[in-house]
Design a protein around this nucleic acid. Structure first.
Lengths: 136, 136
DNA sequence: TTACATGCAAAGTATTTGCTTCGCT
DNA sequence: AGCGAAGCAAATACTTTGCATGTAA
């Protein structure tokens, strides 16, 4: 993998990005400063980084692929209220992973899991709304 | 949901289809007998059936959505050799489901999981190849 | 210098939608 | 009769690819 300034720009923008950007989102950040950068290059490089294991691809059902800088073990969860993607880890999640490794059938070598629920912020919001319907 | 002959054709083709068809695959089966049937109608009806809980939508990472007639609890697994999608159930899989229900964070209300491994047929094939490299 | 990367536009894949017409109920 | 559904084509969303040019090693 050859060093290019595009690769550096993309990796830098990715690391400064809070959350889990899509290729388009990174392109939107980079495009103003680097008008000649093309979306295809962003896609190509993010895919290359992911293939090399430098970053994580998070496939979203019914949505664009997002990328994740956390390489350590964790799960992903989508908040059904706000649509945001979150990184999740806990002892209970380790227990899920362990249970999956116990599956004997099918030579299971790998898996993808996506959790759906409510993030902390949306949980608080709906509580306030419940207590005071004019809250927004 | 209004009764139409298209709905009947699609549901019938779906039930006669062995495995997990995509909208395109069902359309390919139906199109010769019903040349006026449109792919959009197949999509619209499969989505309607799924929304009504009559059939199951199986979202495939990097691939077209497949549909499943089994409504009972089970998981899905993709064979990494042949690409086929399989229905899976076993006590170990129930244990995974249980472990997921034990997750306290994020108010997890739902999840999607896809297992990757090797199906029985491909397992046998690769054993034969191992024992006799000319096997095919 | 040469092989890989980029930019750009075009194509690809999967699916949905606008709109007119059709046909259940 | 009225309104949801079908047919068709076009649009959409996301992503990849072909090809000429650029540039890192």
């Amino acid at each position: 993998m050859r060093q290019t300034k595009q690769k550096r720009y993309i990796m830098e923008a990715f690391q400064n990005y809070h959350g889990h950007p899509t290729a388009e989102e990174l392109y939107a950040v980079l495009s103003p400063k680097h008008p000649r950068l093309s979306l295809a290059t962003v896609y190509r490089n993010l895919n290359q980084f992911a293939d090399k294991g430098m970053i994580n691809r998070v496939i979203i059902p019914n949505g664009p692929t997002r990328f994740d800088s956390i390489l350590d073990f964790h799960y992903h969860a989508i908040c059904e209220e706000c649509g945001e993607l979150f990184d999740i880890d806990s002892p209970e999640i380790r227990a899920v992973d362990e249970a999956i490794h116990n599956i004997k059938a099918f030579n299971v070598s790998n898996y993808k899991i996506m959790l759906y629920g409510t993030c902390d912020l949306c949980k608080v919001k709906s509580q306030h709304l419940h207590e005071n319907p004019s809250f927004n």
